[in-house]
Computed example of a mutant assay.
Amino acid sequence: MDILSVDGHINKKRLALSILVPVIGGSVTGWLANRRAQEEYKKLKQPFFAPPGAIFPIVWTSLYTLMGIAKYRADEKMNWKKESSLAIPLYDLQLGLNFLWSFLFFRWGLRGTALIEMTALLALIALTAYEFQKVDKTAGALMVPYIGWVTFALGLNYAVWQLNK
């Protein structure tokens, strides 16, 4: 199955935009939020299950790409069927919360607030995946790795917060 094709068609410009917004947005947000914060972060106590820092950009780039494809597929299906849905507004909201988390946790050191925000983020991701699935099953399925990673990240955020009160 070609995950980029929707009903046998690919709108390359819309697909590229759908992927580039989260990938570039996540990269810029990460750079802005993490500038000068990494030295402080390295001093924090880490839980035993914390992955090496080099893993995060790889995972996030992959997840942002999958999210972008999912958004593209859902958006294209709704356009073809002339349907309206909460899927895209929910997607946009969760993406905004995703970007905000880096500032809360890294830049501003508000780890407890970041934990609360990530809980809301996880709920919005699940709602987005549900709405995507109603429009396009593949789009919903493409959000599952994101749900898994944010669930893991929630546990990591909690552990770092607890270890460094």
Rank of each mutant, 00 (worst) to 15 (best):
M1K: 01
D2M: 09
D2G: 12
I3G: 13
I3T: 07
I3K: 10
L4I: 13
S5Q: 10
V6S: 08
D7W: 04
D7H: 12
G8S: 05
G8A: 03
H9I: 12
R14T: 11
R14N: 15
L15E: 03
A16N: 10
A16I: 12
A16E: 08
S18A: 06
L20D: 02
V21G: 00
P22G: 06
V23M: 06
I24K: 00
I24A: 08
G25Q: 02
G25I: 04
G25S: 01
G26H: 00
V28K: 10
V28L: 10
T29W: 02
T29N: 12
G30R: 11
A33V: 07
R35Y: 04
E39Q: 15
Y41N: 08
Y41G: 08
K42V: 02
K43P: 13
K45C: 07
K45D: 13
F48A: 14
F48K: 14
F48Y: 10
F49N: 07
G53R: 04
G53N: 15
A54I: 14
A54S: 14
I58F: 08
I58D: 10
V59D: 11
W60I: 06
S62L: 11
L63K: 15
Y64Q: 09
Y64W: 08
Y64C: 07
T65K: 06
T65Q: 02
L66C: 06
M67N: 14
G68S: 04
I69M: 10
A70Y: 00
K71G: 13
E76N: 03
E76L: 02
K77F: 03
M78C: 04
N79D: 09
N79W: 01
N79T: 07
N79V: 02
K81Q: 05
K81M: 00
K81V: 01
E83A: 02
S85K: 02
A87W: 05
A87S: 06
P89M: 03
P89W: 02
L90T: 14
Y91S: 15
Y91P: 11
Y91R: 11
L93V: 14
Q94W: 02
G96M: 02
G96Q: 00
N98A: 04
L104E: 03
L110N: 11
L110R: 15
G112P: 10
T113D: 00
T113L: 12
A114W: 06
L115C: 12
I116M: 09
I116C: 02
E117I: 11
E117A: 13
M118D: 06
M118I: 09
T119G: 15
T119L: 07
T119H: 05
L122S: 07
I125C: 04
I125S: 03
A126F: 13
A126D: 06
A126N: 09
L127R: 14
L127F: 15
A129Q: 06
Y130H: 15
E131Y: 13
F132H: 08
Q133L: 12
Q133V: 04
K137M: 08
K137N: 13
L142E: 11
M143I: 14
M143K: 14
V144T: 09
P145S: 00
G148L: 08
V150N: 11
T151G: 15
T151K: 11
L154V: 07
G155W: 05
G155M: 05
L156M: 05
Y158S: 09
V160K: 12
L163Y: 12
N164P: 09
N164D: 05
K165W: 07
